[in-house]
């Protein structure tokens, strides 16, 4: 494909769009919008520099939103099936206090508490079993196995044990984040090179000095790997656990309740909040990772 000429592919696409106009004008409009945006992106993506890195995905995302809005309006799709982005935005703007309360209940009280406790416990256990090769050989396969199980399934049990409020959600989150973090941390504590350990031996460093000055820093990249995986798991755990019982506040509760009332715009509003919270949470952990493990080759680009 040369830069200036318009390739045959584009011509074919344009012909299809024109053909669609005979079938259904609305379809042709959507197709034309899509092709136009794609054409712009195809051009932009050949440019060098940091601008297209942002602009291209942004245009893509905005195009999807525009298509969605247009499709809902043109075809008159019922809001019970798919509300338009504008309707969702209006709902978000109109229910900020509710969304905020749900966010506090689910993300801060349930997910964050469980995340901190679960990750803390995993790191502590990793350090505790560090001195026993026997325990590690036993716990690691079990941990790896458990990490692949559908742990959200314990939600009904936790709700029975700890009640409807956020404590049961935090308990689910603790179990969900524990094993991925444990497995990563144990692997990280092993990640030192023999030469580095020999160096500590020539200094006659104690076990704790070696742990603190060598093995813990060397384990950080692995730990953050686990911590990042755990952010998503924490939110999932906290939201899904609410499907099994909750007070009348919380993101999972709201989604479940809105289903009954068929107010899909509210569900989408909660999903938008969940997406925002998830990305922000992940971004925060990623930010801390960059600050703490700036020395690691993967961060140095």
């Amino acid at each position: 494909m040369s830069g200036a000429a318009i390739s045959p592919g584009w011509i074919v696409a344009a012909v299809i769009a024109a053909g669609a106009a005979f079938v259904d004008l609305r379809l042709a409009m959507l197709l034309a919008l899509w092709l136009g945006a794609w054409f712009v992106n195809a051009r932009l993506s050949r440019l060098k520099g940091p601008l297209p890195r942002w602009l291209v995905p942004a245009i893509f995302g905005l195009t999807l939103l525009a298509l969605w809005e247009l499709a809902v309006r043109l075809f008159g799709i019922s809001p019970v099936i798919l509300p338009a982005p504008s309707a969702i935005a209006a709902r978000i703007a109109g229910s900020l206090p509710i969304l905020w309360a749900d966010f506090v209940q689910t993300a801060l009280k349930g997910a964050l508490t469980g995340y901190v406790l679960g990750c803390g416990a995993a790191v502590a256990v990793a350090v505790l079993i560090d001195r026993s090769a026997f325990l590690q050989r036993g716990l690691l396969p079990v941990g790896n196995f458990v990490a692949a199980l559908p742990i959200v399934g314990i939600a009904p049990i936790m709700v029975m044990w700890f009640g409807f409020d956020w404590q049961s959600k935090a308990a689910v989150v603790i179990v969900m984040v524990f094993f991925p973090v444990l497995v990563n941390m144990v692997a990280g504590l092993k990640a030192t090179e023999p030469m580095q350990r020999d160096l500590m031996a020539t200094y006659h460093a104690s076990y704790w000095q070696t742990l603190w000055k060598l093995r813990f820093p060397a384990a950080l990249p692995f730990l953050f790997n686990g911590l990042k995986i755990a952010t998503t798991l924490a939110l999932i755990g906290a939201i899904v656990a609410e499907f099994f019982g909750s007070p009348i506040v919380g993101m999972g509760f709201r989604i479940n309740a809105s289903i009954g009332q068929l107010s899909l715009d509210m569900i989408w509003a909660e999903i938008a909040v969940a997406a925002l919270a998830g990305s922000a949470f992940y971004g925060l952990v990623g930010f801390i990772e960059r600050r703490v493990t700036f020395w690691h080759p993967s961060q140095r680009r």
Binding site: G252, I259, I267, G278, S279
Partner: peptide, 16 residues
């Protein structure tokens, strides 16, 4: 999208 709790939309998909 990997950082988003996608699972939350599961119930809605079912109902729709």
């Amino acid at each position: 999208s990997q950082t988003i709790p996608i699972l939350a939309i599961a119930p809605m998909i079912i109902v729709v």
